[in-house]
């Protein structure tokens, strides 16, 4: 019952923002200003719907079998849980874990190493990667133009049926910008609509002492690149941010991921090495001092005695937003895609 009511409320919110300025309507009051420049790509109802269709459409891959949603599933807060490392067309395995797509409007750099500097440009990477969708934006625009479904959708969203790379990318961004998760218990507490249990409140204190400097609330990421002390995975030999900047200080630094919706986004870390939160906490509390080059904040380790770990876990679970994960407006657009291909 509660979920149903929540869903209804959320869909009302969704309907009401459409056509309005994003930050006017859906910037949660306790969030900072978004980084995305909405004046360059104002959200519209038709633009979002087109982006949603593109996001779920296998047409974007070379063999018409992989969509963005193959690796970014709504039920996993747009992460991927079957595999530690994502897999793409012809079952080729990539080298990183697909991250959750949450609150992207507040993010400035994308990918675990920040290789992508603008949300609009993100889709080019999977579309072109031979292990992911194995196509190209030029091929995708041709396929969309030739389809029966898309020219009218482009007409509705952009004023003419022409499919261009710019329009494809901006539409995908419009949909991804609606992946706003701010309906967790934590958010309700911040908005004075709920209260933490004693255990959650204790966990919140532990969190603020040990985790908030990197996983900064309310987005639960500082949007920086840090080395959190994970030993390098020998098989992948992934040096993270260093691969982009070639600055030795960035060696083994990865994007600090949000901690929202951890309940749905396992496995964890850039290579999906941990299946459970208790493994993550074991890393932060015990394994830390074994590695030399981790961030200075972590050098002391986190001696968490007594129930601190249990309390912290209870707090982390208050960041789950089931209304986000079960929001029908973000799910597969049956009405557009089902009967048409």
């Amino acid at each position: 019952m509660r979920i149903a009511a929540g869903l209804f409320l959320l869909s009302m919110v969704m309907i009401s923002w459409i056509g309005l300025q994003f930050d006017e309507v859906y910037s949660p009051p306790h969030f900072p200003k978004p980084a995305y420049q909405f004046e360059e790509n104002p959200l519209t109802r038709d633009g979002i719907q087109l982006g949603r269709a593109l996001f779920y459409d296998n047409l974007l891959s070379a063999n018409n079998m992989v969509s963005c949603a193959s690796c970014h599933s709504v039920y996993n807060a747009f992460a991927h849980t079957d595999h530690a490392l994502s897999h793409g067309i012809e079952d080729r395995i990539g080298k990183r874990n697909a991250p959750a797509l949450i609150n992207l409007a507040w993010q400035k750099r994308f990918m675990w190493d920040g290789a992508i500097h603008h949300l609009d440009m993100q889709a080019l990477a999977p579309i072109s990667h031979r292990d992911e969708m194995g196509s190209s934006i030029a091929e995708v625009t041709q396929k969309l133009q030739a389809s029966k479904v898309y020219p009218p959708l482009f007409e509705a969203a952009w004023g003419s049926p022409e499919v261009t790379g710019e329009r494809v990318l901006k539409s995908l961004s419009q949909f991804m910008l609606t992946l706003v998760s701010a309906g967790s218990k934590y958010d309700r507490v911040k908005l004075h609509q709920a209260q933490f249990t004693e255990q959650e409140a204790r966990g919140y204190e532990v969190f603020k002492a040990h985790c908030n400097s990197c996983h900064t609330e309310p987005l639960f990421t500082s949007n920086e690149f840090k080395n959190n002390g994970l030993p390098v995975n020998q098989a992948l030999n992934d040096m993270g941010r260093y691969g982009i900047t070639q600055n030795i200080d960035d060696s083994l630094c990865f994007k600090v991921p949000t901690l929202r919706n951890l309940k749905y986004t396992y496995p964890y870390m850039h290579d999906g090495r941990f299946e459970t939160l208790s493994e993550v906490l074991r890393h932060y509390t015990r394994n830390l001092r074994n590695t030399a080059k981790q961030d200075a904040q972590l050098s002391q380790g986190f001696p968490m005695g007594g129930n601190a770990k249990v309390d912290l876990t209870a707090f982390l679970l208050t960041l789950s937003d089931s209304a986000f994960v079960f929001n029908p407006n973000l799910a597969f657009p049956r009405e557009i895609l089902l009967n048409n291909h």
């Binding site: 360059e40 790509n41 603008h118 609009d120 080019l124 934006i137 030029a138 790379g165």
Partner: peptide, 16 residues
């Protein structure tokens, strides 16, 4: 962000 015309990534002059 994404741009059109000569700057459209379909021209093959954008790293993916």
């Amino acid at each position: 962000g994404a741009m059109g015309g000569d700057l459209d990534p379909v021209n093959g002059m954008y790293w993916t």
